[in-house]
Design a protein around this nucleic acid. Sequence first.
RNA 1: GCGAGGAUGGCGGAAUUGGCAGACGCGCUGGAUUUAGGAUCCAGUCCCGUAAGGGAUGGGGGUUCAACUCCCCCUCCUCGCACCA
Length: 827
Amino acid sequence: MKEPRIGLIYPAREVEQHWQKYWQKNKVFRTNPNPKRKYYVLVMFIYPSGDMHMGHARNYTIGDCICRFRKMQGYDVLHPFGWDSFGLPAENAAIKHDIHPAKWTFDSIDLCKRNLNLLGIAYDWDREVTTCKPEYYRWNQWLFLQFYKKGLAYRKEAFVNWCPCCQTVLANEQVVEGHCYRCNAVVERKKLTQWFLRITDYAQELLDGIDGLVSWPESVKTMQRNWIGRSSGIEVKFKLEETGEDLPVFTTRPDTLWGVTFMALAPDAPLAERIAQGTGREKQVKEFIGRVLMKPEVERVAAGLEKEGIFTGKYAVNPVNQERVPIYIADFVLASYGTGMIMAVPAHDQRDFEFAKKYEIPIKVVIQPEGKTVRPDEMKAAFIHEGVMTNSGLFDGKSSKQGIELVTRFLEEKGLGKKKVNYRLKDWLISRQRYWGTPIPMIQCDKCGVVPVPEENLPVTLPENVHDYKPKGKSVLANVPEFYNTTCPRCGGKAFRDPDTMDTFVDSSWYHLRYTDPKNTQLPFAKEKADMWLPIDEYIGGIEHATGHLVFFRFFTRVLADMGMLSIKEPCKVLHTQGMVSLDGKTMSSSKKHGVWVGPFIKKYGADAARLGLLFAAPPEKSLDWTEDLVTGVVRFLNRVWRLFEAHIKVVNFRAPEPGKFSRDEHRLYVRLNQTHKKVITDTEGFQFNTAIAAQMEFLNDLYAFKDKKSPVFGFSLGKLLYLLAPFAPHLAEELWHRVRPDAQSIFQERFPDYDRGFTNPETMTVPVMVDGKLRSRIVVPRTTKEDEIKHIALADRKVAGYLTDKQMERIIYVKDRLVNIVTAKK
RNA sequence: GCGAGGAUGGCGGAAUUGGCAGACGCGCUGGAUUUAGGAUCCAGUCCCGUAAGGGAUGGGGGUUCAACUCCCCCUCCUCGCACCA
């Protein structure tokens, strides 16, 4: 890497350490337990896995900047931090290095905490939360039991996503394009009995709630909408010809019902196993199902693959026209969506079309495009658009749009179907077959079945005395007899604990609430305390959590509100997704040991340089590729600030100057100060830290260029600059502040000043003059000049006049304080 | 395929929402200071042109006195979902 040719000229490490200790000792950033104007700044907590890189630092710097700024504005800020410390990497590292996951985790926490302190992030450490401690995870268990009581936690046998590498199941949210989100192995299918949280009960609420999240990025909202995947249609009852048994199918296109030429079942649908009974095709069908289900879901379900199926030997009857259609089993039909069964309309659905072509199933056109006629034997693809219904009995001639409504009503009236809404969102599978997590507080008794652990027996502590936590395809805790064997709380007989642990996304679904009451031993949090601080005013974290964590934590908040434990339904008003930090084009990663590390970087340049570099390089939501060049500019800036104060420390003052006595230069400087001050406030409030810093750099350039360094306006400007600088380069600002005012309290306990509203505009203004939209001249006039006079001066301008000689002026436009445009007549 | 976002100097990025395109910073060029400097200070730096001037915000059209900004078409990039019936 290219080494920059620059270093700090002041003893940054000493200065920084001094003030970090001072802030801690004097509890400058302790949370006010009884806030008057509350402000909750939350950064997503960290999974402590080794060292901390600039990507992490960016996240925490943004939060810290806003925390310090709001505190100075007089808010009572809650700015907590904690450790998302359960999870697989701890075990994997432990297996690799032969140390206990707990030791590895706490070592990582120590390291991260040191780094955060090096950066000078102002957390209230009295509210620290560590999810792998029983004081925290007992409330995971308690919450699980409340969910269970409400019927929101349930156990079922299902095909689940199984990662053969991590040896555990995964939630749908943890499967990325058919691969494990963590290790990238191809996810397999396994039939297991597992615990689920009934998030689908909240699908509609979670969807509707998105509209109220006005200050969330549009992209995140769209992702969540797509993830929930609401689709409304109708469930139509086809019948099995032989027995008259109902075969319900879900469709959004009832207008194409007359075009159904076959039906298809998912290979893993319950009916698939027995449908072929008595047809003589049992063996082939069974063989087909077995073969298809062996394939990993990615291979089976990836779009664009050739579809495969088999005829079952049975027929169904179409309720609208009594037509007899063959029933297939097809690999592209999903058991988990709708009814696990579809009506297939090859003429108007591309998948059905491809399948029909392959198996020579008839194609029947029932929707014709406006003004054209489509013929089945000429079709190269399905016609999936709107059109006019045809071959559809009573409904011929209706548009497909009308048809959808009319046919739906018709089916409902005849009792042949009912309106239905389907969601893509599935219930949240939370069982994990690994060691380093929250034990699920459930007991399996031979006599009583599944029995919850009584609340007074919580926590169910994770046994520490485990040496063999290597995954073997079954739960690690099942091999720990002193944990696994227990007695039934109901009958006292022999029983077993559930040997699985919870998905760690449970931990992060309510940590924002625990911070409001982190030491409560009676409840996860007291309602009054949570209500006092919520909703989160600024939530800052990576966009990669858009459809995982950010859905789950909305879900938990709603459930807790419904339990009466909270008064709000949405946890967070404003979400800021921060871009990744990459190095040489690859995202920084602790586990892959790829990155610029906070510790060594700070040794070299100091914390303020790191913070300014991260904030100045790009707007927070943009990803950024780190190079050491980014630091050069901000280090130079810090040095320039330092040097200027060193040279003029005696003139620094905080007395508002008297404008009546200003020289012209002083007036100009004073205006520039107020302009800068205003911009720093609006930009910081709008999370545009890069331009807030740029404004300060500009102003510093003005200060350097200012001649009369003895002027009280100059000294006052230096004093003001310290406040502006404080949220961005807190150590330097604090140091200089105390050099000027040795007896003062911390600058962060000062009130952020307001700017002088009467002085944000210069006395004169430069008005560009255009002729026919092209810039031709500029005129300088006093601010108070009236419109007519400005026009007059513009027209009289020598350069302008030159462009008007053989032309006829048609009109003249003046935009207040902006420009003059003279429009000439076209020849 | 569907959805979202984006494309501005050599580079990171600005542009009060329709009003001087390129703030600020990096880099580069020249100068000053210095034993020297990769430190510091000053000046310059979108392109063509000696200049007057002309051309520039991915490409093409349009609206407007005026377009990076609004509308239509196209190209490319990033992200998300992806056989969801």
